[in-house]
Structure formats: structure tokens, C-alpha cells
Design a protein around this nucleic acid. Structure first.
Lengths: 201, 201, 201, 201
DNA sequence: GATTAATCGAGACGGTACGTCAAGTCTTGAT
DNA sequence: ATCAAGACTTGACGTACCGTCTCGATTAATC
């Protein structure tokens, strides 16, 4: 159902080819509105108007509002998670936390929050959301911890997977649910009093 | 804007008083539908029909669909978080996790997820959501840890607040975002490899 | 269905007796609103508010909006048609026309017009309307012509019934349908060029 | 306010043009329901359902229920008044009366009656009503009498305008107000004892 | 004089129709 | 075959009205 517009078409179709610039304009408009007004208040007419496109141009590329939002969101979320490499696990974690906190405070974070409520009823949206947003963040922490293990900075039996999961959980919980600040002191405390104690020899 | 129907009226108003049984029927119908079809697909007509009420009866009590859902949700969520007392911090935590996992898998959890996306655009909903859902869970863990501290089971400098927050974060993250099972092994691991290690002397 | 509030009750009921002043206030409010906004836009709530009455007080007296309007209208229309007696048929007709034109231009006329569209679907309203409004006017002309016949002013085979009908038809047609003025010249012409020529020897 | 859908558009607008078949279907459905249940009980949902149209399609063309009804009615009424030509004024009048009586007994007549009560509060409806319904009938009689005058069948000083007006008045009065039959004997009497006597040399 | 029962104003109740707006489809002329 | 524009059906929105009902407070007739 998501039916993201595929860049490569096997059969070079007849007639006027699709205007690839429209894809970008529509995805951009979608993300902007998603961050501004949320999923429910995002209307297809408004997206079309903002991108100076017709609604048919949208529905030619995506099957539904959900598919459009998924694709626009996933494409943005995927390339947003950095894997830092400062040389120490403490530095890597702290930098990852900072980057993720900035991500959550920005358009991608607001868009992600807008989508949470739709996940149970839209399996394809859920799959894309998890693949891009949830897994992306977790893999970054996994990579950080794997390097730390290779350097011998952390115990061999450290609960790596749990730490990776908890890192993302703590950040999204503050950002989306509790409404508390994702500020420096919080991130410091998270690293120093939770994550590192769970990993250290 | 939520404008929950107030139980106590200072001025004994004139005219026919509101029928308190309608409040309950409407809130119940709302929660049922919220859990069944989600926030977006929940329609006021359907709520009215299920509660055998007129739409005017709903709008006399709540200003909008959002206000109704908030109130129905908050009232249910508030009384749903148990504070266990098994005698040991391990037992208390495990029981709290079990209870909260059941809560998240049930109507309240599904309703909470349905509301997450609306929080940024509805401050009153956000306030009610946090007061009933987020804070309720955190306070339960706080109480458990306070008792554990009195019994000397945990270090005096244990990161109590962080543990309380992480507990909720881990559960809601699995339930709402990652889509992974909130099953026994996960809860076991959470207690044994994350929470207790952070608390133990 | 009309169920006009009966003045004389055979069984002097127990309990608080009905307040007869409410009948008048409600009928007056009804006629005012009927003339002001028409039948469709007349609401029971507005009638109650204008008469400073509760809706139950209305429905205790009349079964429906239709019944209330019928009764209020018929009672006013019935006592509004004068039977002039100037001594000559020309004078009588002209005076009757003047009086009826004033009647049609006033609240009763506006109320009557508001009811026309409802007649086909409300038989009791239709019966009351005809008995009070249509027949009343026709009988007045009949009486005038009968006296004229007794005085020998008109032919013995004059189309009395037709003239009576046409008189009312001409007036209501102008007042309700054509929108033209029911002014002196028109009434003069009606008497001198239509009615009298049909009657004169 | 009526805002009848205009057939001729000066500016060849962009986008999908309005589907002219919807206009017809909606007007037809409106007239049918108007004749069946009257103005008050005519609902926009029912009109839309009967025409297999959406309500938005109606409101794109007409501003309100009133405007729709006016337009549907006027368009039908305009083309419904015949101007007979039998060769004699008696025959012409009788045929006109017959045709008009049939018209009044049919959908157009019932619709006209349903609209009478709205005329005082909707000037545009009133204008359209008079232009199509009232004036149409009067002009037909005028034409008949003009031909009769040319043939010398009627007096040169006959009250032509008054006769035209009275003809319509007598018919609508019976049809809408008095509830009496518009049958052959009545029409005979109207021609022989009222109209012709007023015209004959 | 206390009781009883029907009234009063006020307004909540279940329904139904209103007129608006969004989702997703279809139809123009033009590129 | 694509594009922008916009009309199309469907269905939910929040409001207003109808006729019924229930509340506390009157007000006569009965006890």
C-alpha cells in the first residue's frame, strides 16, 4: 500500500514521463505539514496546494494519505541517525544522545509522534516506521557498543541489546509522552548514572 | 477545552439536572471504540449510538471529540496503576511491570497510544494525559523504591528518579513504538539486568 | 390534534389549575413570530422564551407546533372579518374590501400566508384555516349580497356565490402571490369594473 | 441567493467542469419531493440520495434549500403555461382554465403552494416565483384577450387586466386556499357567469 | 393547617436535518 | 501519459430544533 514512487522504471513507459521534482515537493510539503499540524489535521488538499500540485499527482504516486506520510517520513528518518565515533563509549553515547535529541525536537521527531497513534491500525505504516525510525536509532547504539566491546571498554556480558533499547526508550518517552525537557543535564545523567553503570566492567 | 462534566456543582441550578448515568455510558462507549478502532476512526455518531444517546447530550458535556476522549481516558487511566507490595524490591518491580504491561495491552494502553499524536497540538489533553497516565506510572515506581530504600534493599545514592522514568519508558516504547512483545522474558531481563543492577548496593 | 385549550372543564380537576394567562401569552407570542419569521422559522423554544414559559406549558395545551399555530391563528382570524352595513351594496363591498385588505396586510394576513404551504399535509390545520379564514370572508360577502338582494339592488339571478368567492380570491391573490399593492385604486376598480357589473340588473 | 447554476460561462474555467446532468437530476429530485412531501419535509439528504449525488454537489450549485427549490420550481413553472388558440374567446378561456387547473393539481401546483409561505422572507424566491408562476399565467390570458379584441369578440373597454388577474386568482384560491374542487362545473361557471359577462359587448 | 396533586419555568433527553469539510476518484484542457 | 485544477460521492463534523422528560418551586383543592 505505501507504494513509494520508484525511481527506476523497467518499462520506459509511453507518454509524458513523470516529473521527478514533484515527488520531492510533495514529500517536503507533507513533512512540513506533519510537523506543523499533526497527522490528523494534515489534509491532502493542503499538501497539494502547498506543493502547487493536483491531488491526482499525489494519488498517482501513493495510494493513500497514510502511504504518503509513511514514505515522506521514512525517507527523512532513515538518513537522520548518526553513528558517532569519538574514541570512547562515553563520548559516543553522549554524542548520539545529543544528535537524537535534536532529531526528536525537529520535524522528524514531531512527525514521528504524529504517527504513533496510527501504527496499530496501519501495518505497513508500522513496518516502515519501525524499520526507519526505531531500528535506525537502535542500530546506531549497537554499533557504538560493538566498537566499545572491541576496545574492551565494556564488560563482555553487558546487556548490550537492553541498553540500546533503553536509550531510545528514554529519549522518545521524554520527547513524546512526558513532555519534559530533553536537555543537557538529563542526557548527562542518563549516560553517567544509567547507561555507563550498566556497561562498565 | 476538555471541560469534563463536573460532579460537584456549587450553584444548585434550575431546570432538569444532567443525568449522571449518561456520563458513564458515554465514557464507556468512548473507551470501547477508542480501543477498537483508534482515535481517528472514532466517530461521535457511533459513540452516541452505542451509548443510546443523542449527539447533543455529548456536546453538552464535552466541547469536542478530543475533549471527550481525554476525559474518558484520563478517568480510566488514573485508577489503573497499582502499587504492589510483595516485600522485596525485585518482587514489587516485577509485579508492577506485569500489571503495567497488562494495562498497556488493554483498552487504556491502546487509548493512550491513540492519543500520543494529539498531545503537541492540544495542551489540555497533554496535561491530562501526563497527570493520569505518565505520572501515575512513575509515582507507583517511586513508591516501590521508597519502600525498598526504607528496608535498606537499595543503595542510598541509587538513581531512583531515573529508574522510575526508565521503567515507564521501556514499557511504553515496546508497547507503542517498537511493536515487540511485552512478554515475561523481556520483563525478567528488564528487572534482572537493568533495574536491579542500577539499584543494588 | 389541534386540541385547543378548552375553557370549560367538566371535572374541576385537583391540583393547581392551569394559568389562563399563559394561553393568551403563548398565542400572542405565536402570532407575533408567525408574522415575523413565518411558519418554518418559528420555533417552539422561541415561542416559549418570548412568552416566558416552559415548553411543557405549551405541550400541555397543544399537541404540536401545528396545533398551536392553528389555534392561535384561527382564534384571531375568526373575529377579524367585519360585515359592513352602509346601506348600499357598493358601499358595503368597498368597505368590506378595505377591511379585508387591512386584515391581509396585518399579522393575520401574514400568518395566513405562512400557513398556506402546510395545508396539504395537515388536514386539521386546513379545516381550521378554511373555517376561520376562508369561510369567514366569504360569509361576510354573502351577507352583504343577501341584504342587497332584499333591497332589490342586484339581479335575482346574479352569481352571488361566484362573486363572493372571487372577492376573496382577488384579495388573497394580490396579497400572497402577486406581491402587488392592495391599494385604493385597485379596490375601486375591483368594485366598479368587476363586482358591480356582475351583480347589477 | 438562489444562485441558479448558470448555463453560460464567459470565462472557460480551468479544472473539471460541472456535470450538467447533475443539475437536472437534482432539480428533478427536488420537484418530486416537493410535490410528495412539501417544502418543510423536503430534506437535502433525501434530495441528494434520490439524485445519487453528494450534498456538496448541491451546495456547490445552490446556496441553500430555498435557493434549490426556487430554481427547480421556476424552471418547471416557466414552460408550463400554454396559450391556447381555439378561435373563440370562450374556447380559449375554457382551455386555458383546464390547462391551468391540471397544472395546479400536478407537481408544479403543489410546489407553488409549498412556496407561498416563504415568499415574504425570501425576496429572490418571491421574484422568481412571480416571474415564472404568476406572470406566466397572467400573460397567457392577456394574449387570449388581445386576440379576442382583434377579432372584435369583446368590448373595447373590457377590463382586460382585471379579468386576467381574476382568472388566476380564482384558480389559485380554490387550489391552495379553499380546498374546493377545481372541476368542470366550476370552470364552466367561471367562464359563463363571470369572465364572459365582463368581456362581452 | 397539613397533605396532595397538578401546575409553573427551566432545561436535559433521544432523534433528525442542517450546512461544512476531508478522503479518494474522475474529468477537463494543456504540455 | 503526465500536469494543475477542480467537480464528484461518501461520510463525519458540530449546531439547531422537535417533542418528551424531569427537576425544585408554586398553588389550589382535599383531608
Amino acid at each position: 500500500m505505501p507504494s513509494a514512487p520508484d525511481a527506476t522504471h523497467p518499462t520506459p513507459r509511453r507518454g509524458r514521463p513523470r516529473d521527478a521534482t514533484r515527488d520531492d515537493a510533495l514529500r517536503r510539503a507533507t513533512l512540513e505539514m506533519l510537523a506543523e499540524v499533526g497527522y490528523r489535521a494534515l489534509t491532502m488538499d493542503a499538501v497539494a496546494a502547498r506543493a502547487r500540485a493536483g491531488k491526482a499527482t499525489i494519488y498517482r504516486r501513493w495510494d493513500s494519505k497514510g502511504a504518503l506520510v509513511v514514505d515522506a517520513f521514512a525517507r527523512e528518518a532513515q538518513r537522520s541517525v548518526p553513528v558517532p565515533d569519538t574514541g570512547s563509549v562515553a563520548g559516543d553515547l553522549r554524542e548520539h544522545l545529543d544528535a537524537t535529541a535534536r532529531l526528536l525536537a525537529g520535524p522528524v521527531g514531531r512527525a514521528a509522534q504524529a504517527l504513533v497513534g496510527e501504527l496499530p491500525h496501519e501495518p505497513e505504516l508500522a513496518a516502515a516506521f519501525r524499520a526507519s525510525f526505531v531500528t535506525g536509532q537502535r542500530c546506531a547504539v549497537d554499533a557504538v557498543l560493538r566498537r566499545a566491546a572491541e576496545r574492551g571498554e565494556i564488560r563482555s556480558d553487558a546487556p548490550v541489546a537492553a541498553v540500546a533499547e533503553i536509550t531510545g526508550a528514554a529519549l522518545t518517552h521524554r520527547s513524546m509522552l512526558s513532555g519534559q525537557q530533553l536537555d543537557g543535564p538529563f542526557l548527562d545523567g542518563l549516560v553517567d548514572r544509567v547507561l555507563l553503570p550498566l556497561l562498565r566492567p
